[in-house]
Design a protein around this nucleic acid. Structure first.
Lengths: 330, 330
DNA sequence: TTGTACGCGTTATCAA
DNA sequence: TTGATAACGCGTACAA
């Protein structure tokens, strides 16, 4: 490979001078600049980011922590959109990115995670869908050793921002819209997400408040964002309820398919606005959010934190509606 | 962060001794081993992989090159399975992994790509679905500067292996099975993949040979693996054909939905066995392959090449069948 | 069996 | 404005 020494030799200057040209130092003559740049061009020289990150104190490598359970079979389009959104911005900002699964860290203490990340010279973190069960990850965020952006969480401090939609309001909106559109709203089955997930908690709270306002009967069951569990919950309660509100589209799909097998109809609404919904050709209300953009925004927020900004809470917009096949294919 | 010096100090030995213990050198006393290991435990020491890769010649970092077009809306479950499969094995082998999109390299020459990768100290490559349009990527493979595994391609040389299913045989099998199961097989519409894709070429050849054997009429159109294009091709030819064979499931789904809108029925078959198919509840024959396992295997093959193995052509199994919703959810 | 010194590619600090 | 030299954290010949 071509190193800074090769460039220096070709340009007839010292390697420290090459470094100065490359990093836009002011105290360097136009003549040397020209020579160095010519040599760089000719040799296809690309600075070694590994060496830079070892040497430079201010070099930033971003760790992406996603929570994909690839043992489950389902389509994980959300994870992919998170990744591509972040990778895209990383390229623009010329930053290195390393991907992790949160499952890797489940058996580690906060300090162990910290050293593990530091050992890869990672100093920035984007954590997607951090659960309260990830206690050590949460601890890590509170240590404030890394510049962190949480996606769909709610913690923030000096060095930590959160990028999220308003899960409370969104759940409230999609549920109340679905109620308005239907006559019999006597009993509602709410299939919540995971017991210890930040977003699940907020969505559940919205349902509880809605119930207080409108005074319907509500059965709450945790589906753990698992399509199969949602399916089984529906088999259990289908006869007693009028409307089913789900905390995720995947569970909503599981619910609708279960209802079809039982040959009964109840209105169902979902949450997330995943593409998959378009293919099922189920017309249900859901909360549409752009995971790709949200992840891009999270990366830009990392950039802001690097530049010295304080951690903050950022709310991104969502819309309520039906996902149609035609929306999905173009 | 904790460095090897901290461990050495704590254990009361030289840092080179620590290094020897960590890398399982034989010439070291049980006593020092014990001391070093105790210090490592206590300090949560994790070796800095960035420094290792800079220093050690034999350290291996693997670049993953995937070809996701995230501008298109469709669900990209295949890409995600490729990534998770590779990440999984990387963890087992304690190797660093860096992800790239092939689109990043479209405007670069082979030499530029080489320097770009070398600058990140990458010496191994897994390239997914390399197209013939990626001429510079292909050139790069031929330079043999990297240990490379191609997934679903056909090139191989001393330093390059290919992991793939038998695309020719699979296309032949799924098409002839679909023909057998239906009476009217007068005219077939074959919606091929991309003009310059290795796999598309092989799949098309299978159809041409099948046509010679069975003597039906065949219309061939390129759908570029694009669901929307497949849809439009079907609108154009639906009235003239009896059976539609597609080179991908996504195009097959596009075809079926188009037929539904036209309110006509023709048998359709697909290729890949994606989970998405289960949600559409379309009962069609397709080629089922395990992208997750294939990617794991590709990573293990990298390991074999590292250990000095020669590049080879590896065929993995596939099955023909229908993807059912129940298969998909558990 | 253990410790010393150098190299990997880069940036940062000084002296020239 | 430039160039020599010391870090960064690690592995590894080679010397002790």
């Amino acid at each position: 490979m071509v190193s800074i020494n090769d460039v220096a030799k070709k340009a007839g200057v010292a390697k420290s001078t090459v470094s100065k040209v490359l990093n836009n130092y002011s105290m360097v003559s136009e003549e040397t600049k020209r020579k160095v740049k010519a040599a760089v061009e000719e040799l296809n020289y690309v600075p070694n980011s590994v060496a830079i990150s070892l040497s430079k104190r201010s070099f930033h490598r971003v760790g992406l922590i996603i929570d994909i359970q690839h043992n489950r079979q389902f389509v994980d389009e959300i994870g992919m959109k998170h990744l591509t959104g972040a990778f895209d911005r990383a390229q623009v900002h010329h930053m290195d990115v390393v991907t992790f699964f949160s499952s890797q860290f489940r058996d580690m203490t906060a300090n162990q995670i910290r050293e593990h990340l530091a050992a890869q010279r990672i100093n920035c973190l984007i954590i997607y869908n951090m659960s309260k069960d990830d206690i050590h990850l949460k601890e890590l965020v509170e240590l404030e050793d890394f510049l962190t952006v949480l996606v769909d969480s709610s913690v923030y401090n000096r060095k930590t921002s959160t990028v999220t939609i308003n899960h409370y309001q969104a759940q409230y909106d999609v549920a109340s819209k679905t109620l308005r559109e239907n006559d019999i709203t006597d009993t509602i089955l709410y299939i919540a997400g995971e017991m210890n997930s930040y977003v699940s908690e907020k969505r559940l709270q919205a349902m509880i408040d809605l119930q207080k306002e409108q005074g319907f009967k509500m059965i709450v069951e945790y589906g753990d964002f698992d399509e199969f569990k949602a399916r089984q919950i529906v088999f259990q309660y289908a006869s007693e309820v009028d409307i089913i509100v789900c905390a995720s589209d995947l569970m909503a799909i599981g619910a609708v398919f279960a209802l079809r097998e039982l040959d009964v109809f109840h209105p169902v609404c979902g949450f997330d606005g995943i593409t998959l919904m378009g293919y099922t050709q189920i017309a249900m209300n859901t909360v549409k959010q752009d995971f790709y953009k949200k992840s891009q925004l999270a990366f830009d927020e990392i950039q802001r934190l690097i530049e010295g900004g304080q951690g903050q809470y950022i709310e991104v917009p969502y819309t309520i509606g039906i996902i149609d096949y035609m929306d999905v294919i173009q």
